[in-house]
Design a protein around this nucleic acid. Sequence first.
DNA 1: CGCATGACATAGACATTCTATGTCACTACC
DNA 2: GGTAGTGACATAGAATGTCTATGTCATGCG
Lengths: 112, 112
Amino acid sequence: MRSSDRSSIPQGTLDMLILQTVAAGGEMHGFAIADAILEQSGDVLQVEEGSLYPALQRLLVKGFLTGEWGKTPDNRRARYYRLTVPGRKQLGVELAEYRRVSGAILRIIQPA
Amino acid sequence: MRSSDRSSIPQGTLDMLILQTVAAGGEMHGFAIADAILEQSGDVLQVEEGSLYPALQRLLVKGFLTGEWGKTPDNRRARYYRLTVPGRKQLGVELAEYRRVSGAILRIIQPA
DNA sequence: CGCATGACATAGACATTCTATGTCACTACC
DNA sequence: GGTAGTGACATAGAATGTCTATGTCATGCG
């Protein structure tokens, strides 16, 4: 009985959403990124942990984020992610591509 | 040297685009559907045959389309697809969900 | 007659998200 | 002061769906 009206993240957009969230929020740890995406999307886009951490790993490996271990205010270990310069550039590329494609889809689904 | 600026279809949107195209164009065969999507999207969304036909099969099996064999004007065999009543309803569902999710993404990527 | 082409079709690769599960340490409570 | 809850990170495996590559078949044309 999967009763949530929250949606899964469309494939290909998760990296962009993470980069954008870190760009806007500065230094954040994983949980906080997922929380911010959920909240800012109006409770629609829920990032599961099994999607979040592999995505963060990808972004680390590609050099778009740095991740430094630290402590949360209540003294728990956490990894703090920050956008790199190539990460900011990559965000721009992904935003442009997303807008291009979603614009194209709009032209189809909006009755001219 | 893959030099095209055409994009792949975001996962999950192909069925919606096909249903919408058939809804707008009436009776169409596969090639014509792909052509219409490419053209209406402003040359952005190119549906490959290896994506198109499996998608059409899915939609046939689910009863959202009917497909009747016929002949093109130049006498080639072709399968003509038409939207069913459940297909029209499904299109409405997918449009609503797409708008809900893309709206949520917009709230994140558009600086408030 | 042979070749290009329109149209349909399938198999396999690939990428990405999800479900499910696990770990570890800190906090709080009885 | 042990035990349960929880924050946070992590991985393995399944599911999904698009793409690349390939194949077939018949028609039209040179």
